[in-house]
């Protein structure tokens, strides 16, 4: 398969086409993932998430520069929401990543969420697989931490950094969004603004109340809370260091293997679910449409209708 070979060889055009293919989730995308899968699994995948406006793209830019100084090749996937009205999207993350322009050791790809929860997570995971197979050692996945989809994407990462900013009232946005539980590292960006130290203190207090995270070996991980000023590159080296320490912890504690196992299960389960759904649609698509009408007209309840459809669709 030519495209996969080119990707593995690091051909940038092929990488770009490959990501488009997996994003489309066309049948050929599965073949591509199949061909790339054995070559992936070497990269450390870092999820960067947080509310809109906290400076994620700027942070990713600064972090990527830091990795580049150490010689690691960096792949970046930046996800922005699609418009629920038109399905289109404006993807503006590159604006804040202009420092990375012209560096062949960096590959930046913008992705739109395309409105489909499970689909987004899968497309993102597959895009990461493409970059991973192409030899990028660190892959940064930037998402807006607002919904379930983003949490799913973050779960596909080895290390999740949750980004905050001070001064947005007493609310800690990460807690509201349910992101504290998935954070391996917490970053208070715009750390020169009023209330930064307070935000750090509040986060640390919240974390001290959470049950300790203990890996299979008995080692514990306490998510560090770091201050950064991404626009000035301040606090970025400590962040990279914290990410590296988390990677070492995953290795040392056996937690990484456990996570990989869970991740594999999730991905497989989802693939099975989707395959079943597609098969079901192929067999009972027209009956499904008719059943929808009957549920709408309250001639039947959804549960009974589902039972009937599945019974009829069984081979």
């Amino acid at each position: 398969m030519e495209l996969a070979e080119l990707i593995i060889a690091g051909d940038r055009r092929a990488i770009a086409r490959g990501i488009s293919l997996v994003e489309s989730q066309a049948p050929a995308a599965r073949e591509l993932v199949a061909a790339l899968y054995p070559h992936a699994g070497r990269a450390h995948i870092v999820g960067i998430t947080g509310a809109p406006g906290v400076g994620k793209s700027t942070l990713v830019n600064a972090l990527a520069l830091d990795y580049r100084r150490r010689g690691a090749r960096v792949g970046i996937v930046a996800v922005d929401p699609s418009s629920p009205f038109s399905g289109g999207a404006i993807l503006g993350d590159r604006i804040r990543m202009r420092d990375l322009a012209g560096d062949p050791g960096v590959f930046v790809r913008s992705m739109a969420s395309r409105g489909n929860l499970g689909g987004l997570a899968r497309a993102t995971v597959d895009a990461v697989t493409v970059l991973d197979a192409a030899g990028f050692e660190t892959i940064l996945v930037e998402t807006v931490g607002a919904g379930q989809a983003e949490v799913e994407i973050a779960q596909a990462a080895h290390t999740v950094a949750v980004v905050q900013v001070p001064g947005m009232g007493d609310d800690i946005q990460a807690i509201k969004a349910g992101l504290l539980e998935i954070a391996d590292v917490l970053v208070v960006n715009k750390g020169d603004q009023d209330g930064a130290d307070q935000a750090v203190a509040v986060l640390e207090a919240m974390l001290s109340l959470a049950p300790p995270r203990v890996g299979p070996s008995g080692d514990a991980w306490t998510p560090p809370v770091l201050k950064a000023i991404a626009t000035q590159g301040a606090g970025i080296a400590p962040l990279a260091q914290a990410i590296a320490e988390h990677a070492a912890y995953l290795e040392r504690s056996g937690q990484g293997q456990q996570n990989d196992q869970a991740r594999a299960a999730r991905e497989l389960h989802q693939a099975v679910r989707e395959a079943l759904w597609e098969r079901f649609l192929a067999q009972a698509g027209s009956e499904l449409a008719a059943a929808v009408q009957r549920v709408r007209d309250r001639q039947i309840d959804p549960y009974t209708a589902a039972e009937q459809l599945l019974r009829d669709a069984e081979p």
């Binding site: 699609s82 999207a89 590159r94 739109a112």
Partner: peptide, 16 residues
């Protein structure tokens, strides 16, 4: 133009 293309269902990468 970026917004018009988005509203026509396209994905627009805006570089600034």
């Amino acid at each position: 133009i970026a917004r018009a293309l988005r509203d026509a269902g396209m994905e627009v990468i805006y570089t600034g």
